[in-house]
């Protein structure tokens, strides 16, 4: 177990190293010039060159990358070009908001998706199954900004149940979390449905029925733990999809998380922030997958970690 964990952590570090290299390289070859953004349109060529030298952006790629990596190892993610603040500090101050939104959204996704999936599987082929599957298809294919604006319009503007945007109370959390939850629930309900249908056909379900157990117990105690395994692996992957979706939703709802930070930084080619947010997101994905793998043997004793 300890050996497994150590090996996985080393693997994770290598993945993050790869992500940092690729991102840094892409930003290096990008035609947008960060120095122009800092200096402004009216700056002379000399000023621009000065700034370039100050930031070390005149050095060859490999030197720049080595310098960034050297800082990273010591816990230094660099300074923002425009905000003149430590990137670590910026991300740290916005991380709680994003984590809160992430947990809220995943909770919504699971509650909605798993319930829909289980119900659809139990009434397979009936009207309720068809309605749920069409619904899940709609949520999977709906664009994020449409759903967020729709919810915002109905529940915040028209009904006034929730604030239009911002951060601070539970009421602020509901709409962005539900938006992400609805969008993600389609995947979970489809996966849960097919997994549940397979499990309900299994021999041990027949055994459970032959024992004279009630339907609720068969579904919850016998079928669910077996059917949920592939879903757990999916939560790990889902964090990655979530990180992509958060940029739009945070912008629409004015949620002060790292998605919004990233959006602003990309517009201004603020390389240290883009690097920092990318690495933090990658770390979250790696951690999510590791946690999903660690939880699996706890549910299914046949899985051995080694």
């Amino acid at each position: 177990m300890a050996a497994y964990l150590l090996r996985r952590l080393i693997q994770s570090a290598l993945i993050l190293l790869g992500v940092s290299f690729i991102t840094f390289f892409l930003l290096y070859v990008l035609p947008a010039d960060p120095v122009r953004q800092i200096a402004g349109r009216s700056a002379t060529a000399e000023t621009v060159e000065n700034i370039r030298q100050q930031l070390g952006l005149d050095k060859p790629f490999i030197v720049q990358y080595a310098r960034y990596l050297g800082g990273l190892v010591q816990g230094d993610m660099g300074r923002s070009y425009l905000q003149k603040t430590e990137v670590a500090e910026l991300i740290w101050s916005r991380l709680p908001a994003t984590l809160l939104l992430m947990f809220g959204a995943i909770l919504c996704e699971l509650v909605l998706g798993l319930t829909m999936g289980i119900i659809a599987a139990l009434w397979r082929g009936r009207a309720v199954d068809q309605v749920l599957m069409v619904t899940s298809f709609v949520t999977v294919s709906a664009p994020q900004f449409v759903v967020s604006l729709l919810l915002l319009y109905v529940f915040a503007v028209k009904l006034g149940w929730f604030p239009i945007g911002g951060y601070g109370t539970f009421a602020h959390l509901v709409l962005p979390a539900v938006t992400l939850g609805i969008l993600g629930s389609g995947w979970y309900s489809r996966m849960m449905r097919s997994s549940m249908i397979d499990v309900l056909r299994a021999d041990y379900i027949r055994t459970a029925r032959a024992k004279g157990l009630g339907r609720a117990r068969i579904v919850l105690r016998h079928a669910l733990p077996n059917a949920i395994l592939p879903v757990i692996a999916m939560i790990g992957i889902d964090i990655g999809i979530f990180m992509g979706g958060i940029v739009v939703v945070e912008s629409v709802f004015g949620w002060p998380g790292i998605g919004q930070l990233a959006w602003q930084a990309i517009q201004r080619v603020d390389i240290p922030i883009i690097m920092g947010v990318t690495l933090v997101s990658a770390f979250a994905i790696v951690l999510g997958n590791l946690l999903a793998d660690l939880v699996a043997p706890w549910i299914d004793p046949r899985i051995k970690l080694r």
Binding site: A202, Y204, R206, H222, N226, I299, D300
Partner: peptide
């Protein structure tokens, strides 16, 4: 082999 629930 398959008639018992693997996770119980």
């Amino acid at each position: 082999m398959t008639s018992l629930n693997p996770v119980m």
